[in-house]
Simulated assay, not measured.
Amino acid sequence: MKKTKPLILITNDDGVTAPGIKALIEVISQIGEVVVVAPDKPQSGMGHAITTNETLYLNKISLENDPITIYSCSGTPADCVKIAVNEVLKRKPDLCVSGVNHGSNSSINVIYSGTMSAAIEAGIEGIPAIGFSLLDFEWNANFEEIKPFIKKITLEALENKLPKDVVLNVNFPKLKQEEIKGIKICRQAKAFWQEKFHKRKTPQGRDYYWLSGEFINQDQGEDTDEWALNHGYISIVPVQFDLTAYHATQQLNSWNWNE
């Protein structure tokens, strides 16, 4: 009996034409039946935003001699997953992969990431999901070096099944394949962005601001994603979308709420 290929949804936040998603399609199409639903324009830093006050558009992209089904969506990365599950796919996919993001989504960056929010949205829908990111912000970043690792991680996730309600946040260091030391399961490093706003003026004299900042890592632990990436390892952080601070419930229950 012929084994059915897994159905895999691919999305991202850099847009459907980004080199990172093209690299991901090349790898994942070797593993399963692929359907792509991705933003029609860059949506970096959108976090888990969804579109509620505007119309959404979905356009099928036909590529010559390419059997892969590709759609561009006018919405956010989370929108892409929602519309894929509800309007495009005939059944729930076996896996959702998001990326490959151009730039880091390690540490606190996971909060702002459209790439990871798409993966988390899939997790909320009950779909095992992985977000992939490469620590290279260049549009023409070299994704060839990480393709074997993407394939390995994806196959492991399909074979072993991810824990319930857990999504993987995978970050790759900007290294050649032979320089990567291996894969480490990590925790998210405690870090933050020290923001700066550059104030400028338009030709018409109106003030505007441009956001920049410095990444500050406060965490010296050797079990973090930042440590792994800085020492030549691929970091994998298991992420959960239940944001309850369980460690705080006992203390909060000791307060005089009802007196």
Rank of each mutant, 00 (worst) to 15 (best):
I108S: 13
S113F: 11
G114A: 06
G114P: 01
T115F: 09
M116E: 01
M116L: 14
S117Q: 06
S117C: 05
A118S: 14
A118G: 14
A118N: 06
A119Q: 03
E125I: 00
P128V: 10
A129E: 04
I130A: 02
I130W: 04
L134C: 07
D136A: 12
F143Y: 15
E144F: 04
E144K: 09
E144V: 08
E145V: 07
I146H: 05
I146W: 02
K147L: 06
K147W: 10
K151H: 13
I153C: 11
L155V: 14
L155M: 13
A157G: 04
N160A: 05
K161Y: 11
K161W: 09
P163L: 10
D165P: 01
V167T: 11
V167Y: 11
L168C: 05
N169Q: 07
N171T: 07
P173F: 01
E178Y: 09
E178V: 05
E178M: 09
I180M: 10
I183E: 00
K184A: 12
R187Y: 03
A191S: 13
F192E: 14
W193K: 13
Q194A: 15
Q194L: 15
F197S: 03
K201F: 15
T202H: 09
R206E: 15
R206I: 15
D207S: 14
W210A: 09
S212K: 11
G213T: 10
I216A: 10
I216W: 08
I216H: 12
I216T: 07
N217R: 13
D219F: 01
Q220H: 02
Q220R: 04
D223R: 02
